[in-house]
Amino acid sequence: MSTSEARPADASEETTGDRWTPIREMPPSAKLVAKVLDYEDTMTQSQLAEETLLPSRTVRYALSRLEDADAVDSRFSFTDARKRIYTLTI
């Protein structure tokens, strides 16, 4: 009976894991940025740099890798058109 209880938990972990498949082989900085975006709905590059304690150049590289994998979507900010707002799409 305990084995049947363990199987649904394993199945749910596999389903959850599939969501992160596009970024599994990415650098740690990209994974960190993705995880922060998972907790926060939308953030700018400067907010991500402040939250992750990564240099802005590293955050920019991580975001470009995530965008290439279609894991992140970006749009212009309505309050400041010079900034882009990033959202996790996976």
Rank of each mutant, 00 (worst) to 15 (best):
D10C: 09
A11Y: 08
A11H: 09
A11N: 05
A11G: 01
S12D: 05
E13N: 12
E13K: 13
E14H: 11
E14S: 09
E14M: 07
E14C: 05
E14W: 06
E14A: 12
T15C: 06
T15G: 00
T15K: 11
T16K: 15
G17K: 09
G17M: 12
D18M: 13
D18P: 02
D18I: 07
R19S: 14
R19P: 02
R19F: 10
W20V: 07
W20G: 01
W20L: 14
W20C: 06
T21S: 10
T21K: 14
T21Q: 12
P22L: 04
P22S: 09
P22D: 08
P22A: 07
P22W: 04
P22K: 07
I23L: 06
I23M: 05
R24P: 01
R24V: 14
R24W: 05
E25L: 06
E25S: 14
M26K: 04
M26R: 03
M26T: 10
M26E: 10
P27E: 15
P27G: 12
P27M: 07
P27Y: 05
P27R: 10
P28A: 06
P28Y: 02
P28L: 10
S29Y: 04
A30H: 04
A30N: 03
A30F: 08
A30L: 03
K31R: 14
K31F: 02
K31Q: 14
K31E: 05
K31I: 09
L32G: 00
L32E: 07
V33A: 04
V33M: 04
A34W: 12
A34P: 01
K35R: 11
K35N: 06
K35M: 14
K35W: 02
V36Q: 01
V36R: 04
L37R: 00
L37M: 04
D38T: 12
D38H: 13
D38R: 13
D38V: 00
D38N: 11
Y39L: 11
Y39A: 10
Y39K: 09
E40R: 05
E40S: 10
